[in-house]
Nucleic acid binder design. Structure first.
Lengths: 221, 221
DNA sequence: ACCTGAACACCGTTCAAGT
DNA sequence: ACCTGAACACCGTTCAAGT
């Protein structure tokens, strides 16, 4: 009671963890694209320059924030299931989490496969080796899944106006752009294109990756 | 001869095409991350606000620039080859082009599958249908490839310091981050992880996509 | 119709100084 | 050792005005 509660934060030493927490909170409230060093500092009741003691620059802060975001998305399923379902679940969860705020897409190229996210790597590899994959295959599978998730998020973000929200009976804006210069071939292709722009992009690539993995497994056995 | 050559540009009406050309030139010279409305305008000898007549905002300009960049990367092979090789070639070319400047990764989420890039779509679909795929399968295959390319670019960008340039005999920085908290399992996984961080990421996902497509084709026949 | 100029409300990052 | 304050060199975008 001797210390005022509003100074409690200030007397606590600033740590990487505190900064990342504040950044993730701000991202949730106002979107990743609104993150700025100055706003995170303001939220922490500190000068912008104080953050530079813990991160070399904004990019580094964002890459740690993205890692923490993925680690906290709880992508690893609790129940045990056949590996195909299991992998599908992990990929889907990552995709859904990242799609919850499309502006994560801006920093996908900064991802750190470091300490926090490493636990996801471990769980993934251990699941796949337990059903017969080699370590090498399991690690490659993990990267293939991340790759597909990231690509799917990029596509979904770019076509976010095309997704379910768009009016039924109307062509998606991607389809309309495609038909700016229309010909007979395009008229045949357009309906298929339109269907795909409305899909969850992850359902395109992920099943293909899993099908390829299944083949790998059979050739090992 | 009556008009001075240096006013020639100014008397020409500003068009979307001119703006995109200038933007791509600047991107090539100084990186996509250095693109700004103000710099593009300066290059064109015009006020920043003049660009707003042709694009609603910076994001829209960038999405058109990315589309033009992909369209001009000449990803469609000239010679005819088996479809597996052909698809591999298209994916690789896109990947290499986008990796030539990692900062394209920032705008992958703005991609327009519109008019200019549509010619790539057409060529892709026509190649695949000519060997027996349905239109639906061909369009899905196209999106799966783009997805993989985009994901691979994200991963490569985030690990750019890990690629071939890094000293031999040293662990990649991604591997080092993974081993921040080391245990027996991680010591087994780390060598495989290290190998993969040095790979061209596209060689991970793309062969899997192609292998899955091969299966699809067989089940149609 | 098309472009300009000035202004607004922000940025990331530097450097030197404080305690 | 850790944080602050002031300043620098930029941004995207607005609005009203010019021709």
């Amino acid at each position: 009671m001797a210390t005022k509660t509003n100074t409690a934060v200030k007397t606590t030493h600033l740590t990487r963890q505190l900064i990342i927490d504040a950044a993730l909170k701000l991202a949730k409230e106002a979107g990743v694209e609104n993150l700025s060093i100055r706003k995170v500092a303001l939220r922490l009741g500190v000068t912008p320059m104080a953050l530079y003691r813990h991160f070399n620059n904004k990019e580094e802060l964002l890459s740690f924030a993205l890692e923490a975001f993925i680690a906290r998305a709880n992508v690893i399923p609790e129940e045990d299931s056949p590996w195909e379902e299991w992998v599908q679940h992990v990929g889907r969860k990552m995709y859904v989490a990242l799609c919850s705020d499309y502006s994560w897409v801006r920093i996908l190229g900064y991802v750190r496969v470091g300490a926090e996210a490493a636990e996801v790597t471990d769980a993934f590899v251990s699941k796949l080796t337990s059903v017969g994959f080699t370590i090498s295959q399991a690690v490659r599978a993990y990267f293939a899944v991340i790759q597909t998730v990231f690509g799917a998020v990029c596509l979904r973000a770019s076509m976010s106006s095309d997704s379910a929200a768009s009016k039924e009976g109307q062509l998606s804006s991607t389809t309309r752009a495609y038909l700016e210069q229309a010909n007979l071939d395009r008229l045949q292709i357009a309906p298929e294109l339109d269907k795909i722009t409305r899909m969850d992009q992850i359902d395109l690539g992920l099943p293909m990756i899993i099908s390829a993995l299944k083949r790998d497994l059979q050739s090992v056995k």
